[in-house]
Design a protein around this nucleic acid. Sequence first.
DNA 1: CGGAATTAATG
DNA 2: CATTCTCCTGGG
Length: 461
Amino acid sequence: MQTAHYQQARLTRDPRFDGRFFVAVTSTGIYCRPICPAPLPKEENVRYFDSAVAAAEAGFRPCLRCRPDSAPASWAWKGTDTTLERALRLIDEGALVQGSVSRLAERLGISSRYLTRLFQNGTGTSPKRYALYQQLLFAKSLLQQTGLPVAEVAFAAGFGSIRRFNDCFRERLQMTPSDLRRQPGKAGDNGELTLFLSYRPPYNWQHLRDFLRPRLIPGLEWITDHSYGRSLTLDNGQHGYFTATHDAARHGFRVALHLSQPTVLLPVVRTLRRLLDLDADSGCIDDHLRPLLASLGGPVPGLRLPGTLSLFEAGVRAILGQQVSVSAAHKLVAQLVEAYGQTGPGPTGEMRLFPSPEVLAETDLAELRLPGRRKQTLIDLACLFRDEPQTAADPGRWLQLSGIGPWTVQYARMRGLSESDIWLGGDLGVQRALRQHDVTFDPAAAAPWRSYLTLNLWSLT
DNA sequence: CGGAATTAATG
DNA sequence: CATTCTCCTGGG
């Protein structure tokens, strides 16, 4: 995109460009989202950056009004380098909070030297600096949105020491954490954290809600016309729940989050954003699919890809959905959760947690009305997750288990990893839609958004 | 704030 | 790959 488009978008404060670029003002040293309500700066004082980090590297600090830390994420980097994109994703999932840069490079199958080169070219900064800045922006949003004590904010954002947190914060954001401490007034925690998570319109909440509704597992999830919530189980064994309420006017969700203990929150928020598919570029995706779906009335505008909480859950739902209707699969999942899901305190009394691999690996699934072979497949998958989590993290490796074929793997990738380019050509629902509407097209033309093509076809039946 | 030990960036 | 530079954290 060229400067003329940026200019147009900022002058109209177009929310469809929120998070896709940032506007830095040389006269103030501050950078903003294109939607910033502040008076429009003169063009001669404006510089455009395609990421917040890039603006920071040029010496600008985030605006306190439009809060660039709350902008939806954008993966649309100029170089469209898939390795770099994967690296950015992994870092955003916390790869550098726990592991080292060399470990990340190893995971990506490249040398750490090459990784830093990719970063220098693509983002204008180094991996560590990029990661640190994401942590700082997240900390900033917590300071402004919640009443969490500063020390807990540091911890939640993945810092190991307050000292270092303060230093970095000062240096990169040009203010201190206590400067940003929310004004007193709003009550402290009763264990609840309220966050606002924004998206880039269009966002088709009705469609997402109507997708989730027939799949809703009682006790595990809850839904109203304007909200969706569910229980959470975290990697560290912690549990909690959230309720996300849609706010169309503000282009986002107000999320109430309850966790059993304070924890590193960054990955939790990433997961919530993935569940609701907040970072998708619906405008681009819809434009891309429009020619293919023209004879069907065009794509569903703002269609989002609903994720599952974990890859394991996606795998379980996929196995239970093999060769059966949505409602039959739904009954099975509900039975499974009812029989094997632990209970915990929820928003309205008892709540169910999705059964863990450890629990399912130890059971015979006698409670479930399911062919014995399929039960065994489920148990095998649970064992894989329990015994070899590294292997289980790649659905491609599940194929070695009997009873798991390409459909299951692809479904799990689409819902559990939110991969955007999954074409479920063999899926019954997709085939029925294609037959009913008598369409022929080459799904390859939808790349890299074939998951959204699949969803569009599902919505036709 | 300063310094030691470790890790990351770079030619 | 080796040198320089930055990050990280405990303790004062």
